[in-house]
Amino acid sequence: MFKTRTRPSWCDEHITAVLRLGGIEPLEAFVKLTSWRLTRCLVCDCEAHYRLEYVLDRNKLGEPVCRACFWRGWAQTTRALQGLPVSAASEEEARSHAEASGFDYLGSLTQPSLHDDPHRVRCRLCQRISATRLSDLSFGCSCQSNPRRDRQTANVSGPRRKELLKDSGLPVLRWWDQERNDSASWETVGVSGRREVGWKCPVCDLRFNRRVDEMASLPSCPACEQERRAAWQAEYRLRRHLHQRRRDETGMSNIVVSIGAWTANAKVARGAAAVIVTGRIQRTGQVVNLNAEKLQPLPLAAKTKSRDFR
């Protein structure tokens, strides 16, 4: 049993009833609304971690909690509506994609595994098991965006274990500078460590120091980052210039007055409040030019002689 400060108390019997309403049963004790706990689906026997607050939300929507069941039905409906030919995904491709995204591949949840069908994976950092589509694995596990969740799927009542960087399987491991860091640091530093250690960029070979937790969450090289920022700024300025130029040239018509036409109509052009221009239209892409042949005064009540001759 547990209770919250602002919400009602919860007991094991009540929690089990809530979970069974959503189509799953608990395999671990639920001690907090936001804690990830291992469960088993009553329909397909898929074991995965869910939070109690997530189960409550799915029950309100009348939607199955088990993501394996949900994504199977979703994929079948989508393929039927699209009417497109589908091919089976190989286990090697699925495993490679999962491992590149920081997950251990536990197997397909459909036979054969078609496009958008769910797969069972386990996060290497927090050990949370989930049923998800391969296309969603590229976003990574939620524990990487919220580090406080990285230990919620283990050690329910015992002390928290230190997650060592060397065992995390994170992409930052290939940045570790073996020459500058001693073996003791490699064996003891944790993923959330605030210690500054040496890193080596795998792209430009630059060596630099940075805190472990910063690199674990977002590996970046100072030199490469500066080059990327400069390239982005240059591209941004170019796109802004082209956009401004396109707006200037396509948002209005350009009136082109030859020397002969100007000599004949200079008095009207300079003195009239508004003019009527007669000439020939010339189009180049989205740019419209009017080659003026004759200018006539247009009487207006307003008194203005504003012109932009260039």
Rank of each mutant, 00 (worst) to 15 (best):
F2A: 02
E13L: 08
A17K: 07
R20S: 07
L33W: 03
L33G: 03
T34L: 11
T34P: 01
T39F: 09
T39K: 03
V43M: 00
E47V: 12
E47S: 09
A48H: 05
E53P: 03
L61W: 00
E63N: 02
P64D: 05
P64I: 04
A68F: 05
A68I: 02
L81S: 09
Q82G: 11
P85L: 06
A88E: 09
A88H: 08
A88Y: 05
R95Q: 14
S96H: 04
A100F: 01
G107C: 12
G107S: 12
L109C: 02
P112L: 12
S113M: 13
H119Q: 13
R120V: 12
R124V: 13
Q127C: 14
R133L: 13
S135K: 14
S135Y: 10
S138C: 09
C141P: 00
S142K: 12
C143M: 00
Q144L: 06
D150S: 13
N155R: 14
K162E: 13
L170Q: 01
V172Y: 04
R180P: 05
D182H: 06
S185A: 01
V191M: 00
E196Q: 00
V197N: 02
K200T: 07
K200R: 11
P202I: 07
C204Y: 10
D205M: 06
L206C: 09
R210N: 09
D213R: 07
L218K: 12
L218W: 07
L218Q: 11
P222K: 02
A223G: 09
Q233R: 13
T250M: 12
M252E: 15
V256W: 06
T263G: 08
A264I: 04
N265P: 02
R270N: 01
A272T: 01
A274C: 04
A274D: 05
T278F: 00
N289D: 11
N291F: 02
L295G: 00
Q296I: 12
R307K: 14
D308R: 11
F309P: 07
